[in-house]
Design a protein around this nucleic acid. Structure first.
Lengths: 245, 245
DNA sequence: GTCAAGAGTTTGTCCTAACATGTTTTCATA
DNA sequence: TATGAAAACATGTTAGGACAAACTCTTGAC
């Protein structure tokens, strides 16, 4: 039999109804109230029970399907997806990643200056002579060096200070300014490190680094950040969810 | 002024109207008929002109927004997004990638046998004693070795033959069987290669390999493939589009 | 006993309609 | 002339209904 999830809808809230519903269903799945394979209450019954219209309920369910939490099959109904396919939203910074796994991250700002760089400007879709804030940071986890992070910020963000960057991740700093990256293009590779990088990361001669260059934009397509990072390959890997819709 | 794109809708086609519209708009953007920054005809006018309802037109536009082709702003209208943020659906195999850039890829099947592997079975969410088809391939581009590809396929795909794999990419073989991966979880790293890998890839002692392990599932959450690949880092990088919705 | 037709269930598509909310432009007033 | 209110405009949210298509399961015929 279909499982009835406890949901409360607040019609006076500014949060859209479909989003309220999606959040609560998502929580029910995350908390284990709904297990993978469990049949889901059908759209029409759910709409009737919650006094919502079918399009609203449908949209909430669609949101979870897009996240890979639910699977719909015509004629059969909707079921909770295999846990392995649950995708989580990505686009976090290394600092966030380390915080989440309980590391004790710290940052040393190696360099912080305004520059012009034709190649970076082109990648960010800015004029070639645009002033960019160039930042080089050494990221450590529990006092062990982990990565050398080179970043360039667009003209609107020249006021980012070294002090901010030593206490927070770059993305947190951007978020506090209302800048929210929503799409990024990353290229991931590997190489033997340059001398300076090897020294900073305390690598032995044969050890490789994992490299990632990233271009990030916000919702309206304004450039947010260009990054060129290299990581100690022994201690770091990059996880990516890929999907085709 | 808003640009009117030429669109023809075939109501007798089994293809949903919103998808017909989305495809044709997508084409107009790809072909350059619509340039980045161009204002888009508004939803209501477009619906009226094409004799479609607003929800249908909205859905088509939403599809393109999800792909990053369009940007909507309430009160302002919809515009064609900056070309840099156009994301393209990923989840292609190395073979497809090489074909696209005009390389001449070839494949040597090094090993092809049915095995049991507890670790792989767990990743694919299968019982520990499930029979898996283990495949090891050497991928070459213009006769230069590029990657060593180790893959494991679930019990339903034990009939995949070495001959197929030498003429096509793995994903093409799966597609012909009606198996369509829609979501994958990848972990990307770097390391120094094992002796056998170094020999196959003709690497000098200090050169690193880029590694990628991948678990792929289809739309209903059935496992499709487990892959453990290593690439010549000099000749290959992995591109990923990341987004937050 | 087996196979096929049909009923029932559930999601997929499409429509009309109304009101809300955020932006820009216009125009009247101080 | 400057300022603020209102209008015009575009997307966002929600509702309710109708029919289509895919799948399962039961029933009935051979």
């Amino acid at each position: 039999m279909a499982i009835q999830v406890g949901v409360t809808i607040d019609r006076s809230s500014p949060v859209p109804l479909y989003h309220q519903l999606a959040e609560q269903l998502s929580l029910a799945i995350a908390s284990g109230t709904l297990q993978p394979g469990d049949p889901f209450e059908n759209e029409i019954a759910l709409a009737e029970r919650l006094n919502l219209s079918r399009p609203t309920v449908r949209r909430a369910i669609q949101e979870l399907v897009n996240q890979g939490l639910l699977v719909r099959r015509r004629g059969l109904g909707t079921t909770v997806a295999n846990r392995k396919v649950h995708r989580r939203a990505e686009l976090t910074s290394l600092y966030d990643d380390l915080m989440r796994v309980g590391g004790r991250p710290s940052t040393v700002v190696l360099s912080h200056e305004v520059v012009c760089d034709e190649r970076v400007a082109a990648a960010l879709d800015l004029p070639a002579d645009a002033e960019l804030l160039s930042i080089v940071r050494l990221r450590l986890s529990d006092d062990r060096p982990l990565a050398v992070l080179r970043n360039w910020l667009p003209p609107a963000l020249l006021d980012v200070t070294p002090a901010e960057l030593e206490t927070e991740g770059l993305y947190a700093v951007l978020r506090r300014r209302g800048v929210r990256p929503v799409v990024a293009h990353q290229t991931i590779g590997a190489r033997t490190p340059a001398t300076a990088e090897r020294r900073h990361l305390r690598l032995r001669p044969t050890e490789p680094v994992l490299t990632m260059t990233r271009v990030a934009f916000d919702a309206v397509g304004s450039p947010v950040e260009y990054g060129d990072h290299c990581y100690r390959a022994q201690d770091y890997s990059i996880e990516v969810m890929v999907d085709q819709r």
